[in-house]
Write a protein that binds this DNA or RNA. Sequence first.
RNA 1: GGGUAGGUUGAGCAGGUGGUGAGCUCCGCUGACUGUAGAUCAGCCGUCUUUCGACUGUGGGGGUUCGAUUCCCUCCCUGCCCA
Length: 393
Amino acid sequence: MTTTSGHLPPSSPISFESLPTPVGRARLGRLVTPHGTVDTPQFMPVGTQATVKSLTPGDLRAAGTQIILGNTYHLSLRPGHERIARLGGLHRFMGWDGPILTDSGGFQVFSLGHLGRVDDDGVTFASHLDGSPHRLTPELAVEIQEALGSDIAMALDELVDPGRPPDEVEAAMRRTHAWAERCLAARARPDQALFGIVQGGVDPALRRESVAAIAALPFDGIAIGGLSVGESKAEMAATLDVVAEALDGDGRVRYLMGVGSPADFFTAVERGVDLFDCVLPTRVARNGQVWTDAGRMNLRNARFLDDGGPIDDDCACEACRNHSRAYLAHLFRADELLAYRLASVHNVTYTLGLMRRIRSGLADGTYASLRDVVTEQHRSNRRETDKPPVTDR
RNA sequence: GGGUAGGUUGAGCAGGUGGUGAGCUCCGCUGACUGUAGAUCAGCCGUCUUUCGACUGUGGGGGUUCGAUUCCCUCCCUGCCCA
């Protein structure tokens, strides 16, 4: 059995082994963390505030969840990472004993940009809760994540819209590199892994430079950031090609942050991505949209009011086993809380089931047909050209 | 029976004391959502029209007037008070 492991720091609290497959750069792997093992490619449901919205840890287990994501920024503001530490850490606090990866707050630099100010030392935010000022630096991001006790922490990074002027994209990338080194220097917990994040927008030269800088550091894993933030599908694929090529021979686990949609999984898996996280499955579920191999459907649409069938005939989740589309359509119209939970149960089950089918497809050669069926039905309703570049922040 | 307050586009309202009433919130219809300030947001929501725009609509009927949602008469309906 050939593995591509290596490059991991000798004292890494995680281990990762992977096998190449016949499909592009896709690989099958196994990530072992202090709280459990993760089969890759794998998807992490997002639980920003110590909860995957509307789902219990039991729901997550039933859906096949192996690892979830929590958030430094939100949890440090409320309830506070010191409090979570006093209460036994994030796993115990939220009742999830499986692996947890925490995001560093870097994305909030981007999404809450107008509430904050970035300088070389760190970020100053106005809290979205009460407007009070808060400071986040690479050292603080590590300190907070160590207090939370996640299995995997993320380095603090800065991402900008790829449509910004090149000098801004480059400046954010250089800041990310400097912060990466400071995060590594600030680590104090040997039982927590730390991933570095590659930036550089959609510029191939900057991406290569960023991969070189981040991959040279003793991180336990490599994340690809700054994508799925407004660039086209073609730009995302091309950028993933550049990153994969530059990472060739690096055996560490690779995590594409903020992706995605069913179609995007295939694009990224074929380019060597092992881990994903995204709010999409749970967010669209709360807004009435559920996914199946036949595509997307909005259960708020009138045509489902008399539809007595399940969301998905092929799904064994609680929603599909026990309830009809008509029932869900009713619950959404009546603003009943169960609608959010059942739709989320289904979408997480579908997404994790899709990842499982991707893994088995890679193993038994049926990957291509799976990709063709799913991507055909899950093409974005929006044409590429409909999405204008974001120019303000 | 007497008095009083009302009757506005599916619902609930706003407005309008003689000079072009389509404004709001629900409901309804559709779309969006990618490291979660999101159980959110956007568009549409009288008729015709792709749009521009045109037309209709203030309980019914009648009257005054160049012109009535507004003033007058009458009828109908609803709430409340008194008999």
